[in-house]
Each structure stands twice: as C-alpha cells, then as structure tokens.
C-alpha cells in the first residue's frame, strides 16, 4: 500500500462576512475551526455592491426588522450602517479570537459577497463561506451543543487539494461522521481513491463512508449534504466532483457552512 504524498499544513483560514450572514455565529464557528487547525483566522468583511446599487434606486424600500416600519433607503445611510456593522464585526472577531487564542486579522473590501472571497490572495489556504440566512432572530442556544460539526462531507479526487481537504476534514472531525464524495469515474480509480482516503482519514482515527458523485452533478451534492445546520462541507476548489463548474455555483446553493480548499502551493 502506498502512502499518500505529504501536504503542507494549513496556515490561514479566511472567513467571509457580510450583512446577509449571521456574523457572530459564523465567527465563532470559524474561530473554532482555526483553533483546531492551528491556523490564522482572517476576517474579510464584504460591502456588497448590490446593496449600494439598491440604495441608489428611488423606488427601493427598506423594512426595519426591529419595528417593521418601512423607510426610503439612501446610499449615505447604507454606507454609515455598513461602517457600524464592520466595526461590530471586527470587535466580535477580535473577542472570539482572543478567547480561542487564535491569531487574527480583519479586512474590509467591496464587491459581490458571493464572489469576492473566492478571489482572495493565493496564500489563503482555506476559505469558509456560509449560506445567507433568513434567520432574523438569533437562535436560542442549547446546553450541551458543542461548536463543531456533527457531520462532514468532503470531496476527494486524488489531487493535492483533495488530500488537503481530507486532512482538514480529519482534523475537524472530532467524532463527527465523515462522508467522502468521490467522482463516479472508473471503478478501479474510484477504489484507489477510496483506499487513499481511508488511509488519510484512518491516520486520524476516522472511518469514512463513501458516496460516488457524477462529476458536475451539483444537485446531487446538495441533496446529499441536506440542510442539517450542524453539517460542514469541505470542498477542494478544483475537485473533479464539480465537473469543471465554478465552486461558487455550488456554495451559493448550499444551506450549510463550507470550507473551500485552495490549490496547494508549490
């Protein structure tokens, strides 16, 4: 049995933050993952240009969540509100990172919330994205819930990124059930991939289950993932499972957090 090639350790985890996402939940989750991976946590707050476009429209209406009252919306108001949110998000990130003893940094950028994080610098190893949430009232916590996923789905196609995705999934598992999504290509190759994945995860005490996915069948991936909020997807950006389709096409439809594994640098 051949041992898989060694992959470089993860150094940086970027978490994408914007007004459509529940920042505090996302930050806590990201900090937990960064701590487990021993990686630096980088917060990237995206000022969504769609919001600013909307604010410039004369017919746009905003309904306040705290009062259900409708107001006209304006660009200066939105920009001011964004600054407030940025500041609050930065403070939250700092507090959580300090508590978790994780090194951290924070940046603000402007663009489309769904695509900007994926254009991050190549030295970013992992990018964490979460689904936009309709949850307007914070969830009431339940004693006994532990941060971290109860179920992990990870793509593996034998590539270096794939191996890193498995490493990440193995590190974050901590008792969670791990399902490996392998491309439905020739049975021999698939068997080999399953053996490799079994070896990598087995080294971390994880015994995975396997799902074959026809390359590019994103609907099937979404179906397999489901909408369990305690689930986590670990996806290699160039995985053959995606069948060459952009990863944001998948992440925009996912209802669970996802960690995207960037190509491994030489």
């Amino acid at each position: 049995m051949t041992m898989p090639d060694e992959v470089a350790a993860v150094q940086r985890l970027l978490v994408a933050l914007d007004t459509a996402r529940d920042s505090r939940d996302v930050i806590e989750l990201a900090a937990e993952y960064a701590a487990r991976l021993n990686a630096e946590l980088m917060g990237l707050f995206v000022e969504d240009t769609a919001l600013l476009t909307l604010a410039a429209l004369p017919c746009a209406r905003e309904v306040r969540l705290a009062s259900a009252r409708a107001k006209r919306i304006s660009v200066p108001t939105v920009e001011r509100q964004l600054r407030v949110r940025e500041s609050a998000t930065r403070s939250a990130l700092e507090a959580v990172a300090r508590m978790r003893k994780v090194s951290w940094s924070f940046q603000v950028t402007r663009g489309r919330a769904t695509s900007v994080p994926l254009e991050a610098a190549p030295e970013i190893d992992l990018i964490m994205v979460t689904a936009a949430s309709w949850r307007l009232v914070r969830r009431v916590g339940v004693y006994g819930w532990r941060p971290g996923p109860s179920r992990i789905l990870v793509t593996f196609d034998g590539s270096a990124e794939g191996r890193r995705a498995l490493e990440v999934a193995g590190q974050l598992a901590d008792g969670a059930a791990v399902s490996v999504l392998v491309p439905a290509i020739g049975p021999r190759i698939r068997q080999r991939l399953m053996r490799q994945a079994g070896t990598i995860l087995g080294a971390r005490g994880v015994r995975p289950r396997f799902r074959k996915i026809k390359p590019g069948n994103l609907s099937r991936v979404i179906q397999v993932v489901g909408d369990n909020p305690a689930a986590l997807c670990v996806i290699a950006c160039g995985s053959k499972v995606l069948g060459g389709r952009p990863v944001e096409e998948l992440t925009s439809r996912l209802r669970v957090p996802a960690i995207l594994v960037r190509p491994v640098r030489a």
């Binding site: 769609a50 919001l51 909307l54 429209l57 017919c59 746009a60 309904v63 705290a66 919306i73 936009a132």
Partner: peptide
C-alpha cells in the same frame, strides 16, 4: 429582489437576477 440590509430587508427592481442599476 429581496435583499438583506444592515438593519432590515429591502425591496428593489431586478434585472437579470441582479438588483437593477439606477
């Protein structure tokens, strides 16, 4: 389009699945 804003939700005309420009 129904879009989250920092303090609520906003409604605006769409074009090509994106918020229409002014």
């Amino acid at each position: 389009a129904l879009v989250r804003t920092p303090v609520g939700l906003a409604l605006a005309p769409m074009k090509d699945n994106e918020v229409m420009s002014p």
